[in-house]
Each structure stands twice: as C-alpha cells, then as structure tokens.
Design a protein around this nucleic acid. Sequence first.
DNA 1: AGAGTTTGCTAAACCGGTTTGCTAAACCGG
DNA 2: CCGGTTTAGCAAACCGGTTTAGCAAACTCT
Lengths: 359, 359
Amino acid sequence: MVKHVSELPTPRARIADVAREAGVSKAAVSFAFNSPERLKAQTAERIRKVATELGYRPHPVARMLTAGSTATIGILSPNPLAQMFANPFFALFAEGVATVTEDRGFGLLFISPLHGSLERAMARATVDGVIVIGLDREHPQVVESIRRVGLPTVLVDAPAWPEHGAIGVDDTAGALGAARHLLQLGHRDLLILSMPSEAQNSAGAETGSVMDRRMHGYRLALDEYEVELGADHVRQAPATFEGGEAAFLRAWEDGLRPTGVLSMSDAAAAGVLQAARHLGLNVPGDLSIVGFDDLPLTRFTDPPLTTVHQPVRRKGEEAARMLLRALSPENGRAGEHRVLETRLVVRRSTAPPGTGVRR
Amino acid sequence: MVKHVSELPTPRARIADVAREAGVSKAAVSFAFNSPERLKAQTAERIRKVATELGYRPHPVARMLTAGSTATIGILSPNPLAQMFANPFFALFAEGVATVTEDRGFGLLFISPLHGSLERAMARATVDGVIVIGLDREHPQVVESIRRVGLPTVLVDAPAWPEHGAIGVDDTAGALGAARHLLQLGHRDLLILSMPSEAQNSAGAETGSVMDRRMHGYRLALDEYEVELGADHVRQAPATFEGGEAAFLRAWEDGLRPTGVLSMSDAAAAGVLQAARHLGLNVPGDLSIVGFDDLPLTRFTDPPLTTVHQPVRRKGEEAARMLLRALSPENGRAGEHRVLETRLVVRRSTAPPGTGVRR
DNA sequence: AGAGTTTGCTAAACCGGTTTGCTAAACCGG
DNA sequence: CCGGTTTAGCAAACCGGTTTAGCAAACTCT
C-alpha cells in the first residue's frame, strides 16, 4: 500500500505528546485533568494550556479500557434497525429509555444483527448492559447468546428469563378487553391482524411471545361469545402503515368481509383505516377497528382510533431504570420482573356493525 | 471497601485465562480467532474449544483500541434525546441513516448533551464519525467543539461548514411554495408556526438555520402578495403534537383569527388540526393548514395534511453515505455539499377561506 | 543541623487485546 | 547427514490512557 507523503489530517495528539511538549510525565498530564490537586496549581494550569494548544482530548476508547466501563447502554433488537425506526412504537419506547439514560449520563447504542448475526453484533458492542426488545419465540438462540456474553440485561415484552430483569404489560388482558368490546357491540365476523412471526404457539399463553399472549386474549373473548374464527381470519401484518393496509386489502381480495378488525399494533390499524377508505368503507359504520399500543398518532387518525392503551414510554423508562439498577455496585436483586397495566381506550373507530358493507 | 467473599457474577474470561487453560501463549489465542492459518489446525481448534468452555469473548473495547476504529458512527444532536425521539421527523431520518450504516456493519450511537455539555458528550463518544442534526444558530460553539475533536463530520440542515460534508434541502423554495399556495387560495390573515430558537436572523437567508431559510421563503411569498404580517403572527412551537396544539390555542386566546396556518413541521401542524377540532373549527372550511416534511402521519390526519415534501429518509441515507465515504481510506473529497429538492403536496387541509369562523 | 514530614512529580505496571520479530523444531532435497 | 526452508508458536512491544508505589526536594520542628 502506498503511503501518502503528507497526511493532511494531523494525527490526533496523544497524552505522550502533551507530556513531552510540557516537559512532564504522562502521569502528570493525566493528573492535570483527573486529579489536579495532586499537582502544583501552576503546573496543572500549564499542562492544560499545552493540551489545549495541541487540541488534546483523551482517547475515549483508551479511557474506557482502564475505567472498565463504557457509560453506554445498548438497545438490542433482532430486527433490522431501519425496520425498528419505521415503527412509531419503537420511537416512543426509545424516548422513554432516553429520558432516564440521558439523565444519568449514559450513552445509547442501538444494536442490530451484524451481517445477519446478532451474536456478532453483541460481541462488538461496547456497552455496560443491554435492553432487549422485539424478541420473539423465533429467536431462542438470541436469548442464549445474550446470556453467554454475561452482560446485565433487561428483557422487554419477552418470555421472562430467571436471571435477568424483565418488563412487560398485561397483553392478554388488553387483548381480551379489545375483543370483548367488539363482540359486545355485536360483531361476529372478525379479522385479526397479528405480527409476523414463526409458527403460532396456541398453548403458551404466558410463556410465549407478545403475539401469543394477545392472541390468547382475543381467543378467550371469542370463546366467551362462542364465536368460531376461520384460520384465514388471522393474518400477519408488519407493524407499519403499509403492512396493515396491504394485509387488509389482501383479505378483502380473498373474499373476507369482516365487520370488525382486531389489530395487534396501532400502526397496522392505521393502515387498515387507509385501506378502508380506499375501498369506500365507512369507519366505523361499515367497519370497526381496534388497535393496540395507543400511540400518539391514534388521536389524529380519521376517525380517532379505539385502541388498547399500554404505557410504552413508561416501559422504556422502567426498563432503563431496572438496567441501571442492575449496573450499580450495590446491585439490587437481579431477576426483577414487572408487568404494567393495559386498558381499553374507546374512541371513534368502533360502533355496532351498522349499515353493512357496500357492493 | 469490603470485598465480597464470593463474587457471584464470574469475572469474564480474559485472553490470558484462555491461554493458560489451553497451555499456549496469548498470541496463539488471538491467532486462533483472527489468523487461524498461522496455527496448526488442530491447535486452533483446541484453543477455540477452551475459549468456548470459558465463555471467552474478546473485550470489544480492547479490540477497538488496537484496531484504531470503533465501527460505530454517532448521531449527534444538541437537544435532549428524548425530545428528538418525540419528533417523528427524527425517527424517519434515523431510519434512513440506519439502512446504510447497518448494511455496512456500523453501529449507531446517539449522542446528546452530557449534563448540559455537548462538548463533554463528544469527548466521551466512541465513534469514527458523526452526523450532526438539529443544529441551530444558537449553537455556534457546538460546531466549534465538533471541529476541535477532529472527527469526520456531516452536517444536516445546518449552515455549511467548508471542511465538512453537508446535506440539506431547499427550505426556502419549499416554504415559498407553501405560502404561495395559501395566498393564491385567497388567504391574507396567516399564522406562522416556527420552531423554538434564539433571536430571529432575518438577514441570513442562506447562511442561517432551517427556520431562517423557511421564514425567508414565507416572507418572499408574502412580499409578492404585498401582505403585511404582524409580529405576533409568528409563533414558536416545538415540533410536536402538543407544541402545535398549545401554540395555536394560545394565539386564539390572544385574539388572533387567522384563516391559514403555515407550520414549519408536520408534527406541530397535526397539533393545530387537533386544536382546530377542539375549537369547533372546520378544516379546511374555516382554517387551512400547511405543514412541512411530509411525514407518513400526514396521510392519516383528519383531514390529510397539505404539506411540503422533503426526502427525510433519503437525507439520512445520503448523510450516512457521505460520512462513510469520508471514513474510507481513499477518502473522497471532504467538503461535499448536497441540497435535495422539496415540493408541495396538496392534500385536503387547504381550501379558499370559506364559511368563516364560528362563534 | 539533623530527623521527620509534606509536596510535587515520575517510572512502571496495568487494562485486554493485536501484531511484529524471532526462534526452535520439523521438513526438504541432494 | 547437512544446510536451507517452512511451520508452529512464543515473548515482547504496542494501542493510549489511569493508577500505584516511590523518590527527591522542600519544608517543619526541635
């Protein structure tokens, strides 16, 4: 490889440069910044002056190495980061995390699979602990690899893991309430929009994924009302506007004419709203829709969305607090586990099945 | 300090532990992972086996130190992170950045002021380069401190800085189009919602902040139509739902009865929509609203929002690409500068001033 | 003036890896 | 069987800081 004669970008000043220039030892330079009381005031001052002239800034990585901590926490997701940011739920969650980490002087690193391998990404991540979100049954080896790196961890919305902290919401109750609401209104032909995942696990209500728990809640309500649900009445839709829109249109093309939609995400529900408008359906006259999450955007949809509220931001805050607690030396107990409440928020996207579907 | 007898969390295995256990040198262990061809296949295999048993994972910070790079890029903002995430614009931008960084195997670190000091936050950030967003005239010393740490930098939506890359959109033209649209429809009494910032700089159209440039565009249109604008017809509103809602309600209380609102952010515009509904105003019958950004949510508001489109996600992508280019050894020229286009998207929140304001 | 203390700074070890230079053993051809 | 080349692995230097132990000079006290 050819070496350029003049490397224009001046190589950054190291501590040895400052020491030489100021005629002192490396230790003195370090003291000048970190323990000035160990130096004659005048010397410390002189060293700092030289440092400023040279544009010296202690190399953060080197500092981390000796400090033994990174003052950074990671938010880890098995899904591509771009996909995460496309989901408003995630931004809200991150907002919650950020409020507490920022306050405590921690940086925030987003970790996503590196060339498809979360394991590799984890190995490279310079963090003191991680908050894991978006985990799914389909990622059992992910949890395992997380456990192996031995970093303090808080799991969000995931099957509890004894040695780690965990935080979630009562998904089953929330979904139950949502389904009951539609059934009470008289709906009998429902479409359920789940989120993408591997095979369904109808058994594990409490041990499975978010989707399992919500589905379980829906099913409980359906059973109460003795309503049968065809297999093609449960569809997968990514938690995005486009995902919900496409899923509903496809169902419609397949000949389904539900009077009510239960969506596991507000984002997809908003997409359904869009699709309904496109099909000339009146909401809630022809079609009722219940979302999940209660994101800020639900107040601006047309009509405002009936949805299951969950304290997303607070979930982020609590997760961060829990993790920071696990990081502190006095180390509160490890396997803390919290479940926050959900509640149905009725707005204007639901009504009794009414004027019927056109066409 | 009392030392506990049994430190339950096993101290993580270091390379020396693996070396001792496998009966080889540290170098051999390193080779086993990074240059296996330098070892007898059988030896390398044995070392890796021992490493796995011990749960050894090379310390990422130590690795960074010798590698001289962090494989991480920073997104830096002078505003609190929580505030950033509350703005959907930011999530969209981050999405763009994430698509390219993720693809190239880079991590993403969010940097915000540490105890109020961005300088300190920068000093601590372990990144190879930074993308700066949300910068403002009010943060001149920020740019200076960024320059001092000497990290490759790309400035987004900020006054161009010769030695760094920069990317933005044609704010002036976008704002001009938005204002012309309302004026053409016949509106004469307008309310402008700017974003929070220090004193206005009416002079610098091209050198100032995003707000300056947009305001300049608005003013150009107003001048064309010879419309005067009272000082209290320009309000500050944070780029959030709540910000826009509160700002419009306050203006209303102050006795203002505009027929059209020009908002510098879609988020605030959506808030105005909310406020209008609250006040019993029909949009666009009684009040027309034009936003800025064209976020996905504009399609779901009631009514869908007329707004100035800017390619937010692409801005993120381009910023990331530009930065990565600056990081690569062959180092494309540094001071690259790009300006992307804006265009007005007319939806249903604008109409001629019509039925008049109720009450 | 000499012993004891304090002040001010330095040399060296350390954090946990990677990489270079080198040596000893194994291998090769003649 | 010997000199030359490969192969396999090690010791030590290095990345850029922080921290501990310790030394010399200055200061205090009697």
